[in-house]
Design a binder for these strands. Structure first.
Lengths: 194, 194, 194, 194
DNA sequence: AATGAATGAGGATTCATTCAT
DNA sequence: GATGAATGAATCCTCATTCAT
């Protein structure tokens, strides 16, 4: 039953269905048919709108990355001191939205996808660069010239913690995850003061 | 031409072929046929030996994990102080063998596999637990009761660094990677002393 | 923006687009979408006007055949002797319009279509019959009772030459093609005289 | 039920099934599934042996062309005079085998295929060149320096007659078809004598 | 009159797995 | 032990056609 102006609605539905399916499957081994069914459309329509399965994945990736970016930006608004800026970014990284199993699985699989798709790699790099530079900016007043290095380490630590959460090794405890990263900040900061 | 005692040789060839193919493909989207061809056997033989593709992957995983375990053990032999023990583990984690693109890609994909396969998850957990406990043991004299927490953070940081290397964001510099983790040790240690 | 009296304009645009697409593709493997795009309309409109893809092809066929018919008729106007009549038909057959790659390809594919569609077969037969009878009429004073046979052979030769031109075997030389057929006339004529 | 040494048997079965299906369909719009079913194998096996549908078509083409080549060669063996050589080729061209509807349809469709596939074009050209040169060789003593031209015209006439037979315009009468071509020989010959 | 939206039906191709030899 | 042969089941993608607007 075709209606006019459905394009954005359908696109969004498909993208979200893709993310959910990737999360459910725990991998990119998701068929267009599964995505289509969850989105309530035909596989043909998915191709009509996105051209190929890969484009659907990339759109899903962009969506997840953009949501994450929004959360970080949102968190930064309220931060009025350097330290609070850094904390805001870390907390946003472990925000409720990102702790959902499906999003987590999607992230992991985007890293895999990046091994093959230049576009996927590009997207991931852009966001990483942004996070690191946000962190470094906040860290500057706190740890001085080490800010870039510390930012890199913090970003890596965040990713590493995600990996382990995905493994279900530790309880997915947001507070604890946040503390693990902030502990690094604390130490670096105290060292700088001396 | 079947020969006596070929089984272990064939098995090893298949396992190594699998790892290389996973590395080459950058994902688990590898066909039994590709693995078989690289190993110089027929696909039928692969099934004869391993039963299924999944078993081949699990065997490959066990192999990578066991090689890593060996490297860590080897590095520990020469370490005669707590600090050197920790350093040994970190260095082993970034040893030449693990820096090869194919092994790196294999690791990443094992994390993905762990999202679906209980056996894969089990294997990964065992090794992580072992590393963490090795680290914690070495850290004990250095940071006291914090040893478990610090070990967890260091392990996560190692994983996170790998993730970024896989992304090709930073140059795959072993020294730098090692330093990033040891810096954490250094800070924790200095804090404990005060 | 629908306007009054657009129907014939649209129809013609679609038919010509179809011929061009068939020529471009070199086969009937042409999608309605391609035709519609070239004609600057929607696929839905194509169906609205023609009912089905097959009808579009048949319309394209009728168009090509009718253009060819016009050219023959036009050439015959100026022909005031039997021999000139025959020559006129032959020359028209190799006229510039018919030598365009797309028209040539269309012709060939109409022969294929005729294998399946009764309507296509009918159309092709009608035109062939007309050409042969035109030729035979002109040949009558020249070769007498053999006129029908000679006409058939000349028509077949014309088709055969087209086939080879389509293959790109020989240079698509109009003069040479014409001569090849007229040589047949010449011989038959000379034989009759003796 | 896999048996050893089936490859040539299967390949042949598939090629013949393809020719028959093309004949039945009257076009190249034949599915691999149809071919496979007629050959009594799975579609997967067809791909296993031929790699792609296009390769199946090309193999079918090679087969038809090679059969035709054999018939011509066979006919030439018995021909001990120039004129008989030419006649042999013409008769072989209209031999029973080539008059079968499916083979005829296959030929026509090969011409279409040649418009798109370089390999198809190459194959068709080779055989045409061979026929023309065979004709020219036989014609040499009969029509002298005109032999090449006459050979070209005869070959074109043969193709043209086939086209019309395919159209079902005339009764597929082998004798009549042969006579149409030989008439050309006769005329050219008589002209040369004068 | 015209189109964006939508789909059912199918088609080429791939692949893990099995089986006869 | 080892493999060539074989396939069922799936998967991505295409396309003619329809329908609401």
């Amino acid at each position: 039953m075709p209606r006019l102006g459905m394009q954005p609605i359908r696109r969004k539905a498909v993208v979200e269905a893709a993310i959910q399916e990737i999360g459910r499957a725990g991998s990119l081994d998701v068929t267009v048919s599964q995505i289509a069914k969850r989105a309530g459309v035909s596989t043909a329509l998915v191709h009509f709108y996105f051209g190929s399965k890969e484009q659907v994945f990339l759109a899903a990736m962009r969506h997840v990355l953009s949501v994450y970016g929004s959360e970080v930006r949102g968190a930064l608004i309220m931060a009025d001191t350097p330290k609070k800026r850094v904390e805001a970014i870390v907390r946003a990284s472990f925000s409720t939205g990102n702790f959902k199993k499906e999003v987590l699985s999607a992230w992991l699989n985007f890293y895999v996808a990046a091994q093959n798709s230049e576009e996927a790699k590009r997207l991931l790099r852009i966001y990483q660069k942004r996070i690191v530079s946000n962190l470094a900016f906040g860290l500057r007043p706190l740890v001085g010239e080490q800010s870039q290095n510390v930012a890199n380490r913090m970003a890596a630590l965040i990713d590493g913690i995600y990996l382990r959460i995905g493994l279900g090794q530790e309880e997915p405890n947001r507070e604890q995850a946040t503390d693990m990263v902030l502990r690094m900040l604390e130490l670096e900061e105290s060292r700088t003061l001396h």
